[in-house]
């Protein structure tokens, strides 16, 4: 099976969020970057799928950063076969989807795994847009998956803890949710082998995609508003609980 996985190179979730002086953007180039949690689930699911169905895993990313170390250690060292790095500074999500779709089609992938959401912008837009540009089936927030020929059965995590078991046809974009699998770390042998695996650098022009952008404009970034100082309720558990319930009803008016 020809398997694809898309990853983002993003600031680590523990990185300090630094806003540029005028609030027009983020100034985080010096912070620790990596492959975000959900994308790691996508990588692991791609490898599991390769393990079960044979074939190859190609990893795709769109970035102007030096992606080499993250992609080799985080994907190729875990039994990925090939990387396609699209070196464009595309901030518009639909542009990113078009770039990825063109590269995925060129490689002839039958299934593509993604993380359910990025940990920086967190817009949840890329994977559905990718499915639309490709004209493929989309299944979002998957916590269980089995593939049989060109058919898959997936359990997706919806609102309010409701889960659904759904059946669909490949090709498909499958977005990966916490609980789908257990992420592994690469071993030394994998890391050594990864050094010699092919990594192709391509541009939008190579892919025949023109970046038009401008559908949205982002700005006015600021830290979240501070909450007013709270108060500690003293006393034994029973007294404190009674006082809390009184305050919730009479002062905060939320009960």
């Amino acid at each position: 099976m020809n398997i694809g996985v898309c990853v983002k190179i993003a600031p680590d979730t523990n990185a300090r969020v630094k806003i540029a002086g005028d609030g027009s953007g983020f100034d985080m180039a010096d912070q620790v970057h990596g492959i975000p949690d959900y994308d790691e689930y996508a990588v692991e699911e791609a490898m599991k799928t390769k393990g079960a169905h044979k074939g190859s895993v190609t990893v795709f990313t769109v970035t102007t950063q030096k992606a080499d170390k993250y992609i080799r250690k985080g994907v190729l060292a875990l039994d990925g076969d090939k990387a396609v790095v699209i070196g464009e500074d595309a901030s518009d999500t639909l542009d990113v989807a078009r770039l990825l779709a063109a590269a995925i089609q060129k490689e002839g992938c039958e299934v593509v795994f993604t993380g359910k959401v990025s940990t920086d912008g967190g817009s949840h837009q890329l994977s559905p847009m990718l499915a639309e540009v490709l004209g493929w089936t989309l299944v979002s927030k998957v916590v269980e998956l089995s593939i049989d020929g060109d058919t898959f059965t997936a359990t997706r995590a919806m609102d309010a803890g409701i889960k659904q078991v759904v059946k669909g046809k490949l090709p498909a974009v499958i977005t990966c949710e916490d609980g789908l699998n257990k992420v592994r770390l690469p071993n030394m042998r994998g890391i050594m082998k990864a050094k010699r695996k092919p990594m192709e650098m391509v541009s939008a022009a190579d892919l025949g995609v023109s970046i038009d952008g401008g559908r949205t404009a982002e700005g006015s970034f600021a830290p979240p508003p501070k909450r007013p100082a709270g108060r500690i309720i003293e006393g034994e558990a029973a007294d404190a609980a009674r006082e809390l319930v009184r305050l919730l009803r009479d002062e905060a008016k939320v009960l």
Binding site: P11, D120, G214, A217, S220, F221, P225
Partner: peptide, 16 residues
């Protein structure tokens, strides 16, 4: 809306 899971806020202007 939020960026970085609520560690920053910002605005999105939709031009379309």
């Amino acid at each position: 809306r939020d960026w970085f899971a609520g560690r920053a806020q910002g605005q999105v202007t939709v031009n379309t």
